[in-house]
């Protein structure tokens, strides 16, 4: 067991965890933040993408023990004062989701993209979302949603 202290969505969290607990396990099973989804569980599908110290990573393949002292933002941490993040609004407006399973990861990944690139092209969006798999939409409306968000942010 390891004792770790980290910040999750702006709140300080101290927990005792098993050495092999992943960040996705910590978020979902211990902190009940089930917005972060687990799809493939081997870092291919991207449903588990969260931000650690400002960068998007796949939380299923990060050990919680190794993130002691980090700042984590999950999909639950994007909205502020009950108002959706512009990326969430854009996914809703542009129908960037169908079943919604991949959406938390898509949104977190796309938010990271816009941090580095204010007005990405369609190709840049598709390249960036390489590690996020959606089996419903065919990606078209996801790309449209990211562009919509870029125009509002």
């Amino acid at each position: 067991m390891k004792k770790i202290a980290l910040e999750v969505n702006g709140k300080k969290v101290t927990k005792e965890i098993s050495d092999h607990t992943t960040l996705s396990g910590l978020l979902r099973d211990i902190l009940n933040l089930t917005g972060t989804h687990i799809g493939c569980d081997t870092s291919q599908c991207g449903a588990c993408v969260v931000h650690v110290d400002g960068k998007s990573i796949k939380s299923c393949t990060a050990l919680a023990a190794d993130l002691d002292g980090s700042k984590v933002t999950t999909i639950e941490g994007l909205a502020s004062n009950g108002k959706l993040h512009p990326m969430q609004e854009a996914f809703k407006k542009m129908h960037g989701l169908q079943c919604g399973f991949c959406t938390p990861g898509m949104v977190m990944s796309a938010v990271d993209l816009l941090k580095n690139k204010k007005n990405p092209s369609d190709q840049e969006i598709r390249d960036w979302l390489e590690g996020n798999i959606c089996r419903c939409t065919g990606y078209h409306n996801i790309v449209a949603a990211v562009k919509e968000a870029a125009s509002k942010m």
Binding site: K58, T61, A62, S109, E130, G131
Partner: peptide
């Protein structure tokens, strides 16, 4: 290599 999240780790 891989995708952005893989490249970040």
């Amino acid at each position: 290599i891989g995708d952005p999240q893989v490249r970040n780790r």
